[in-house]
Amino acid sequence: MTTFLWVVFPYLAIGAFVAGLIWRYRYDKFGWTTRSSQLYENRLLRIGSPLFHFGLLLAIVGHAMGLIIPKAWTDAIGIEQDVYHLAAVGGGVTAGLMITAGFIILVFRRRTTSSVFQATTVNDKVMYLILGLVILLGMWNTLSTAIGEFIGNHYNYREGVSPWFRSIFTLSPNPDLIASAPFQFQAHAFLAFLLLMIWPFTRLVHVFSAPFGYVNRPYIVYRSAGDRPGPTAGSRAPQGTWRSPTARKG
């Protein structure tokens, strides 16, 4: 079981993630979009969306620091454990609060604004559920680390989860490292890999079109009519993922 959960499953998820992205990019460029619902509602979105997304950017930086940079390195350049934790917990709590607040606003908006709710697919709902759980557990991890600091009973994820995470990418997976981690860390990691697995098949793909190229592109793009790919390249007919509302009595 341990092997499956912490070795086989992560590789499966990564495999599905990479293969799925390639597949989606080759066959469904047309479906690759943020599917914004700003047209329907803007008042809540204007607050919720930047909160959520900027919080996520912060969280990504935090995860990169916590998971990828080994403890030995920060020790080597003389960063005290306490200083590190203060930064990690401070940043983590800020990011967590932003994400949670943003997520709650956005989900509330999605549920209560009729037109936005109509445009929500089953696919979206499953994804939001998993994403919500990952966020919830992430928040728990941050807080439990912070509180653990005070009561002196704290789990140092940089000695358990992080090396396990890196061991996956160095192709020498070490499941024992995480098998002894507290439940919330395990659940967070498992669900995060699950999210990764379904990622290419959800609207989350828009993350990979972050348009950094805009910064140094010429303003006006010229293209020849002859540059068009054949009518079928990278496209498929819309798959009917959206229900179109029909008149409802009421």
């Binding site: 460029k29 599917r35 805009y214 793009v221």
Partner: peptide, 30 residues
């Protein structure tokens, strides 16, 4: 419109100047 598109999906055709949105490159940034 083309100048504000982050994805570079809106282009002006060099032959006849018609401005089009490449539906496969548009990512819905609005």
């Amino acid at each position: 419109c083309a100048a504000s598109c982050p994805s570079g999906a809106i282009y002006k055709r060099s032959e006849d100047g018609i401005v089009l949105v490449d539906q496969n490159r548009c990512r819905g940034w609005r």
